[in-house]
Amino acid sequence: MKTASAFSVRPGAEVAANEALDGLMSRLGATPDLLFLYATQHHAEPALLEAIGRRLPGVPVVGGTSCGGVMTEAGFHTGPDGALGLFGICDREGSYGVGAAEIGVAPHAAGAAAIQAALAAAGRDFEAPTLVWCCQPPGQEEAVLEGIQSVIGRTTPIIGGSSADEAIAGQWRQFSPQGVTPDHAVVAVLFPTTAHGAAFQSGYTPSGHSGIVTRAGDRQILEIDHQPAATLYSRWTEGAVSASDRGMILAQSTATPLGRIAAEVEGVPMFVLSHPALMGSDGDVSLFTDIAVGDRIHLMRGSPDSLVKRGGAVVANACATGGWPIDATRGGLVIYCGGCMLHVRERMDEVVQGVRDAIGPAPFLGAHTFGEQGAIMENCNRHGNLMVSALTFG
């Protein structure tokens, strides 16, 4: 296997695509068998995939829009005209395929249809892939994951992120052989010939406050321990998020998300996070994840320093699970939450340097998403917020 990355901050989807493709093909030296594509909403138009299709006919493309910019080993790439990043895998003895399906009102069915289409495209129908990469719009990620797992089971790691835009205005898009789409689950199946490592973590720690969800709605917490959710959440944050706030609270709540224990590794609890997004007039708190009555939620705390360091730490963990030395890493993909990126935007060069330190001289591509998916441990693929998900090849 050989990998390479490239980027462009040029204006215009076609111009940016061609500049990035020039760099990618120069470094890769061959036609990729799978192409990962992440770009800001500025470039999310048909001309983007048309330009790639002219240069790389028949090459499967997977990805979506990224908030604020993209990362590669060359730095954090952003600008007034947007940014675009590519990561190509050349692995002639491996098998790769991409499938997509419209979500509509049937996210479970869309996940199942997309994975089946990806397996057919790879020529590996009825097999469980080594890895799955996914991209979908925010809103119904858990059901999409369940749909994927209904076909391939629960032991295959599912890694990826939900597409994002610049202002949470629904301008996110997904990229696939079906084009630039607003409401599709896009899935890539990977049967690589080399070793891989994956990790899924956050940069937050439990504060000591916790409670049981006693009333819940659709991605809403209505009551915690039989008290209005907003009241108790405000008390836990010591007023950093006021119970009288109404509407969007994403910026205020980034430092204090809610966590649920997804698994334990050697006695250490592993948390999946939910980002409080809206405060309602009835004391309810809306999230970017599903939530259910009976869930125990923990107030989590994170600092800018912990978020800056977490990107490199998760990539290092992914490499460690693969079991090879740093200088043997062939390449990697990093999903770094868009909310975290916005919180530490002025320090994104440090985030990139942390990933470089973890991955060595290997190429990588990073995107900033509005929801992250990963495998915390075997049989535990989850969707969360304010997380980092990494995939590395060795």
Rank of each mutant, 00 (worst) to 15 (best):
A243M: 14
T237M: 14
V61I: 15
S253E: 02
E19G: 08
V268Q: 08
F393R: 01
C340T: 01
G283S: 09
N18S: 12
L37F: 06
G294E: 00
M300K: 04
G123H: 05
R124A: 12
Q201H: 12
L386G: 08
E346I: 10
C380W: 12
G338L: 10
G312M: 00
A316E: 13
A320N: 04
E102Y: 06
N381Q: 09
L222Y: 13
A292P: 03
I52G: 04
A216K: 00
Q140R: 13
T72F: 10
C380D: 14
G58K: 01
I159Y: 00
V314R: 02
M377C: 15
Y204T: 05
A358M: 00
T214W: 00
L21N: 05
Q116I: 14
A101K: 08
W236N: 01
R235W: 13
A4G: 08
L273W: 09
A16W: 11
S253Q: 10
S281I: 06
I148Y: 03
R296L: 02
P46F: 08
T65Y: 13
T130W: 02
D295G: 00
V144M: 07
T369K: 11
G211A: 02
Q140K: 13
R345T: 04
L24R: 10
R260V: 10
A114P: 13
Q227R: 15
S281G: 07
G322S: 07
S303D: 01
L287A: 02
F76I: 06
A118D: 05
W172R: 05
V285S: 00
I335C: 15
I159F: 01
F191Q: 06
H43L: 11
E146D: 15
G267V: 01
R219D: 04
L222F: 11
G179P: 07
V272T: 09
L84Q: 11
V388L: 03
S150Y: 08
I152V: 11
P129K: 04
P46I: 07
A198M: 06
G208W: 00
F87T: 15
F370S: 02
M348C: 03
R55F: 03
G331D: 04
G332V: 07
G280D: 10
P192F: 03
T392A: 13
M300Y: 04
A20D: 05
S210R: 14
S163W: 12
T205A: 08
E350M: 14
C319T: 05
I297S: 00
S306V: 06
Y233R: 03
N381V: 05
G394Y: 07
N385K: 10
G208E: 11
T289Y: 04
T181G: 08
H368I: 08
V293A: 01
I261S: 15
E141R: 05
A185G: 09
G211K: 02
R92S: 13
T392C: 15
A243H: 12
P325R: 00
R219P: 03
L250N: 12
S389F: 12
G208N: 00
D165S: 09
V186T: 14
D33T: 03
G170E: 09
M248Y: 08
W172C: 07
G63C: 06
G259I: 00
F126D: 04
V315R: 15
S389P: 09
H298D: 03
A358C: 01
A20S: 07
S303I: 01
G63H: 10
S95N: 10
V268Y: 01
